[in-house]
Design a protein around this nucleic acid. Sequence first.
DNA 1: CTAAAACGTTTACAAACGTAATCAATTACA
DNA 2: TGTAATTGATTACGTTTGTAAACGTTTTAG
Lengths: 126, 126
Amino acid sequence: MDPRPEISNSEWQVMNVIWDHQPTTASEVIKQLSEKNRWSPATIRTFLHRLIKKGALRYEQDGNRYLYRAAVTRSATIKKASRSFSSSVFDGQIGPLLTHFVKTNKLTEEEIQELQALLETKERKR
Amino acid sequence: MDPRPEISNSEWQVMNVIWDHQPTTASEVIKQLSEKNRWSPATIRTFLHRLIKKGALRYEQDGNRYLYRAAVTRSATIKKASRSFSSSVFDGQIGPLLTHFVKTNKLTEEEIQELQALLETKERKR
DNA sequence: CTAAAACGTTTACAAACGTAATCAATTACA
DNA sequence: TGTAATTGATTACGTTTGTAAACGTTTTAG
């Protein structure tokens, strides 16, 4: 199920919780999110409903409550969002995006090494 | 001038043209953009107005038309947008974002080398 | 057994966004 | 010189988003 239309910023937070705890209940999501944000439970429930309507979440009855799970994979969703982000902000150029992020952010030793390894492989493959 | 609220997807396209042609006129922006998108001139003018209201653009009179220029730098604006993007999509983790982009995209030889150089420097500095 | 708490559903409402038409003033062309 | 085209300003309108209250049903605690 391809989520149409796009997932909004707030909805991303909900999706992230679901992907990390799948399958899970509304109250679990509420617990996780009402700390970070000052959202009322009702607000979070609204996001759950909208995500279902968008086809990004599925649910099944579990007694009197729902168990939610993602209807789309995290990586596919990230890929779509990234494409759309880089297409507006960087005008489709992935290279500048990457160099920008590398320049302007702190990376841990591990992250640096993982990136170097990935780039090595890329280079090999050409 | 810090643009409040955020720049929308469509508005990014306008900003990109302005940054590339600064200072420039509405009709130049319209020319550039109505090819890629199927936007009517009125639509593009609306974006210009909104960007001025948001404080992202400035203008000065030039005869009977305006000359537009950015009121914010491209890099500062990109940085803000990237932060906000990675904070919702990657929950603030920059590392995963980078590895994701490297994994899922084609990079040119030059891009790979630039990234490797950047990472080298980063590693030195720790 | 009854009142409160929990859960899902519906409705609400302002701001932002995508997309544009219309209007008024000015300019340029015939 | 009068009319068409250009330019900026105002208004429009449906959808999405952020943020939530209200409502009805079910479960639970006292």
